[in-house]
Simulated scan of single mutants.
Amino acid sequence: MRFAPPAAALSLCLAMTASISSADVGDPDPRAGVLIGQGQAALAAGDAQAAIDAFEAALAVDPAYTPIFIDLAEAARQQGLQGKAIRYYREALERDPGNFAAISGEGAALVEKGALEKAKRNLAKLQSLCGDDCPETVALQSSIARGPSPKLAVESNADSATAN
């Protein structure tokens, strides 16, 4: 009975240490790093398909490196494939639930799709995790303020009209 409090304290310390070390992303495999760099350059140049090809190759080389999913999501958003981007963001969030970039990116993709209420939930989550001044929070706030993409909103409305 007298060992219960120290044992509880020790187990709490071990649990915290394990959760901190599992949150550490680390560096990608060097070959994947080169492919990620090529993908980011292609994305910056506006060639989303070349970026996706490079990111998918990097994912094949290093499937454990979570930030690749965020890069894939950004490329999908650039192509106007918000649903696919949301899927990539959610994969990143499954691996790292506190990833601010994934929460913010998913929220922005939701805004672009016209799902403002879901995006506001992401904003509330970001505000509770990193505050109002966090760059990801500010980016999502500005996305929500801009509202949905007119092209995507029209497509979304047409899809819902045909579904009825």
Rank of each mutant, 00 (worst) to 15 (best):
A109D: 05
P30Q: 05
Q38I: 08
L10M: 05
G107M: 08
I36P: 07
N164A: 13
L10F: 02
A7C: 02
Y88Q: 13
A124P: 11
A85N: 00
A108C: 11
E155W: 09
V61E: 11
Q127R: 15
S19D: 08
P30F: 06
A73H: 00
M1P: 14
G98K: 09
R2G: 03
A50C: 09
T162L: 12
A60N: 10
E117Y: 11
P5Q: 03
A23P: 01
A64M: 13
G114F: 05
N122Q: 13
S156K: 15
S156N: 14
A51V: 01
R87F: 10
D62A: 04
D29I: 08
N122D: 11
I52R: 05
P30C: 08
A109Y: 04
I70F: 01
G105H: 06
D24H: 12
P6F: 04
D71T: 01
T66K: 12
Y88L: 09
E91A: 11
A51I: 12
A64H: 10
I52D: 10
A115I: 01
G83T: 14
A85C: 02
D27T: 11
L129M: 13
D47A: 04
K151W: 01
A76D: 12
A163L: 15
A60F: 07
I144S: 00
Q49A: 13
E117V: 15
A45P: 08
L14A: 06
A153S: 14
K113N: 10
P135S: 10
Y88R: 07
D71M: 07
Q49S: 11
A163N: 11
A57R: 13
A85L: 05
D96V: 13
Y88I: 10
Q40V: 12
K113Q: 15
R2Y: 02
L140T: 04
P135I: 10
G37A: 13
Q127A: 01
A109N: 04
F55N: 00
Y88K: 06
A64I: 11
A32I: 07
A15L: 09
T137F: 01
K120Y: 06
A85S: 03
S104H: 02
G131V: 15
S104Y: 03
E136C: 06
F100K: 14
G39F: 07
A161T: 11
V111L: 05
Y89W: 06
